[in-house]
């Protein structure tokens, strides 16, 4: 993840840069004390993420955002708690960190970023498990069967039941789509239709209003399509 830090306070830049060092695959390409210098850099360089202060002299963080034609993901860093609601009006703003930023809060921000980038990074420096290791147990004929999240392709609602399709089997479970949705990691699963949740890391392709997962063609509802498109790492 290529990032830059834009903040007029050197101490704030130093803290974010230090926190970034604990994240594998996070590369801080440059730091800027004002938005104008950052804009110059972005003319010739691409980044995936900007840590951006809001209150800066001359050009504020919001002015800066407005000037970006293809904004990357942005994490706002500010001492002003009152700005949070306005911040989320911009779809590319992933998180809003209130200074001083704690390590714990920064870790949560990285989880959000991973979901936004549709990738899972291992947080080895914090010793946290990745969701790749996680699993779900389902009750079939009084037997608890372990399913790894990685192996689940999609889940379909069928009346009072749901059907879980894995790489090699289908399981029929007495439950609802809502219940299972709450148990699945958002970084990997997404409801794309009132009857379907998919593991979007298993998508083969997307055509018109349907998605191909393994050999199954799943409809995408109009209301769910924007979120799906936002989660994809589009070129």
């Amino acid at each position: 993840m290529r990032s830059i830090i834009v903040d007029d306070e050197a101490s704030a830049r130093a803290i974010v840069a230090e926190l970034c060092k604990t994240i594998p695959d996070m590369e801080v390409r440059a730091e800027f004390p004002n938005a104008l210098e950052a804009l110059k850099f972005l003319k010739d360089n691409q980044v995936d993420l900007i840590f951006l202060d809001i209150h800066m002299p001359k050009l504020t963080g919001i002015d800066f955002i407005e000037t970006l034609q293809n904004p990357p993901k942005i994490v706002l860093t500010t001492s002003d708690k009152n700005f949070a609601i306005e911040a989320y009006e911009y779809p590319f703003i992933v998180d809003y960190l209130v200074k001083p930023i704690s390590q714990e809060r920064f870790q949560k921000c990285i989880v959000k970023l991973n979901a936004a980038f549709n990738q899972v990074l291992p947080f080895t420096s914090f010793g946290t498990k990745t969701d790749r290791d996680q699993e779900l147990y389902i009750n079939i004929d009084r037997r608890l069967i372990k399913l790894k999240f990685n192996d689940i392709l999609l889940i379909e609602a069928k009346g009072d039941y749901i059907e879980i399709q894995t790489l090699d089997k289908r399981y029929r479970v007495h439950s609802t789509l809502k219940k299972i949705k709450d148990k699945l990691p958002e970084s990997r699963f997404l409801q794309i239709h009132r009857s379907f949740i998919i593991n979007f890391t298993q998508i083969v392709d997307i055509q018109d209003n349907s998605v191909l997962i393994e050999k199954s063609v799943i409809p995408i509802s109009r209301s769910n399509r924007p979120e799906l498109m936002q989660r994809l790492n589009l070129l």
């Binding site: 306070e9 050197a10 101490s11 130093a14 803290i15 230090e18 604990t22 001083p100």
Partner: peptide, 24 residues
């Protein structure tokens, strides 16, 4: 305390950071 939490025991960072605060 906060600086030590962020540094995770990295004394080089702690020193650098305190220099920044002392200037800023």
């Amino acid at each position: 305390d906060y600086i030590k939490e962020i540094s995770g025991g990295n004394e080089v960072f702690e020193k650098k950071f305190l220099n920044i605060i002392q200037t800023e």
